[in-house]
């Protein structure tokens, strides 16, 4: 099997706190996971779960209490390896006295490109993130979403093999989110490895080959979204209209949820045909029948609630 692009082993991070900084708060506990070459990996978790801590450890912005990590087969302390990785920090902020073109040119200089290549790459990136016309404006006049686009541009400017994006959709409008999604899909097509953290589960479901869910500093599950949530059908949902009298629907109608002129009714798989017959008899027009499967969001919320319950139990025991 090929070597993983990102290989994390028992990564642990404690943050000291208190006046003398003698107390420790564990932010990440023995994280072990791999991101395979060429895959898009989503790192999911609520606020304070340890997503950004993991990414900062990988970028050597903070140092681990224990454990190790390798990117492209090299230890993360190897500076030369940074030529092959791109990183977008969470809520990025850049030198506001520079224009977007100047910031990108500044970052490109660390990759030893000559002046012509820098100019060409900067223009290409500005176009890619939709900032072509704003490239000569100082960043102090940029909106949060525009800064996010500059952040994405600087992360992929040097054509890295591994791209790490910390909340890339944060602060973006629907158009911006769509553009970043397209960029991630394009990176995947080019064979790049992408690790990104997000709160937006629909984006993760749409983009990721695999996701890792982290809650309370502990990795709770890793796998393809469909694997994680399971393939078992929970029931069937019937979408229908009722042109006649509302009373004619009877008992079934009382169980349905109304949205505008339409009704949604969830029934067990075994009771589908009986329910359809009764709806037909009541004069309902059936529009669609779909399988009900658990969503990634439900799986995520289940893990978060389990972690909260466990934390509350520990607190009660401590008292």
């Amino acid at each position: 099997m090929a070597e993983p692009a990102i290989d994390i082993e028992n990564l642990t991070k404690d943050y000291p706190y208190g006046f003398l900084q003698l107390k420790k708060r564990r932010s990440l506990e023995s994280l072990t996971m791999q991101v395979q070459t060429g895959e898009v990996f989503g790192f999911l978790g609520p606020n304070g779960a340890g997503k950004s801590t993991t990414i900062k450890l990988l970028m050597r912005l903070i140092f681990p209490t224990a454990g190790s990590a390798r990117i492209l087969g090299k230890p993360i302390s190897d500076i030369a390896m940074h030529r092959n990785i791109g990183y977008l920090p969470e809520q990025p902020y850049f030198y506001d006295y520079l224009t977007a073109a100047e910031v990108l040119d500044y970052f490109a200089r660390f990759h030893d490109f000559d002046a012509t290549e820098r100019r060409e790459r900067v223009q290409r990136m500005l176009k890619k993130v939709g900032l072509e016309s704003a490239g000569r404006i100082q960043l102090r006049k940029y909106s949060k979403g525009m800064l996010q686009r500059v952040g994405v541009a600087q992360a992929i400017l040097h054509d890295p093999a591994v791209v790490v994006l910390d909340e890339p959709m944060s602060g973006l409008d629907p158009v911006g989110r769509r553009e970043v999604r397209d960029i991630i899909l394009e990176l995947k097509k080019q064979g790049k490895t992408v690790l990104f953290s997000t709160h937006i589960l629909s984006d993760a479901e749409m983009l990721c080959d695999r996701v890792g869910v982290i809650v309370g500093g502990k990795l709770q599950g890793v796998g393809a979204p469909s694997e994680l949530v399971g393939l078992k059908v929970q029931g069937m949902e019937i979408l229908f209209e009722l042109p006649g009298s509302v009373e004619s629907g009877g008992e079934l109608l009382a169980q349905a949820t109304r949205t505008g002129d339409r009704y949604r009714l969830q029934v067990a798989e075994s009771g589908l045909y009986a329910a359809m017959e009764r709806l037909g008899a009541a004069g309902a027009r059936i529009l669609s029948v779909t399988q009900v499967k658990p969503s990634l969001e439900e799986y995520f919320m289940h893990l978060v609630e389990a972690d909260r319950a466990q934390a509350a139990a520990v607190e009660v025991r401590a008292k």
């Binding site: 912005l61 500076i79 940074h82 990183y87 990025p92 970052f107 660390f110």
Partner: peptide, 9 residues
């Protein structure tokens, strides 16, 4: 943050 992720010691 973005700067130290570049090949800069």
């Amino acid at each position: 943050y973005a700067l130290l992720a570049k090949p800069l010691r």
